[in-house]
Design a protein around this nucleic acid. Structure first.
Lengths: 142, 142
DNA sequence: GGATATCATAGCATAACACTCGGGTATTGT
DNA sequence: ACAATACCCGAGTGTTATGCTATGATATCC
């Protein structure tokens, strides 16, 4: 099981924006430098996040990106879905468009994959950016 | 999030062997036909399962494959690991060889991926082939 | 010894991934 | 006005994984 680096980088970037939430728009270059990512590549990723309605952009000088909602209202699952598409361990149990499998009715393996998917999404949807910020604060104390 | 078809096909094949557990070795061609898979490709997959110690082979005429252990002692996680390698949403939290990330100590996103991984493995390791056989029997009643 | 199987390796077309590059457009401050 | 800043967009590219197919060798049973 593997996610692409899109999720990896995307979560880093979103976490960065969450930690700076309230300080106005943050230029992408700043995020890329802080998180040690290629800024050109990150641009493509943030475009996906913008189209998914997770971030808002402010163009021009002193512009940048801001979270579209409060950190507590954005969770890891949102980010993964925006960057990797609907969550599906195998195509026939895709979140979106269940996939047309003629064995769907009686296929036992299918129900297994559905449970695997649900276990995965349960975790992803239970962790918000706000949770991560809180955790970061606590780990910094020590 | 996506698994390759290896897991998809592999689970189907292993489930087939589980349902025929106790009837001696099953030739791969039979499994492939029943599960509607390319037998040549399945051969490669079962080789991986054999090397992982999940199935035993009997060569020659009247030969075939048998589960190496009882269906209750083989779970979905075993099969996925055999076919896809160690489970890791992102490289830095791989089950095997955690990956050398210099940010590992303080990286918050890393702890998130670890939780995602654990949620995933918890489900996979909780479903055995025996469970699937039982489920199949019950759904057949109806 | 022939039929039936597993075993092993190589090859190959397609697609996804992880970028880079080169521009264009909007906004701000001077 | 104009330059600097920063978002926006599409095309191109090397690498890797995927999902096969094909060919042949080896072992075992009857």
């Amino acid at each position: 099981m593997r996610l692409s680096t899109r999720s990896h980088y995307g979560l880093k970037a979103m976490f960065d924006l969450a930690q700076n939430y309230g300080s106005g728009p943050i230029p992408l270059k700043t995020v890329a430098e802080r998180q040690n990512l290629s800024d050109h590549y990150l641009e493509q990723l943030i475009a996906m996040l913008r189209k998914a309605g997770l971030v808002k952009s402010v163009r021009g000088a002193q512009g940048g990106y801001v979270l579209a909602r409060e950190p507590s209202a954005i969770n890891v699952g949102d980010i993964i879905r925006a960057l990797e598409g609907p969550i599906a361990p195998v195509y026939c149990v895709s979140e979106k468009d269940p996939g047309s499998c003629d064995e769907a009715d009686y296929c036992i393996t299918r129900t297994v994959w559905a449970r695997v998917r649900d276990g995965f999404t349960a975790v992803c949807d239970s962790i918000s950016l706000a949770d991560m910020c809180r955790e970061a604060k606590e780990s910094h104390k020590r």
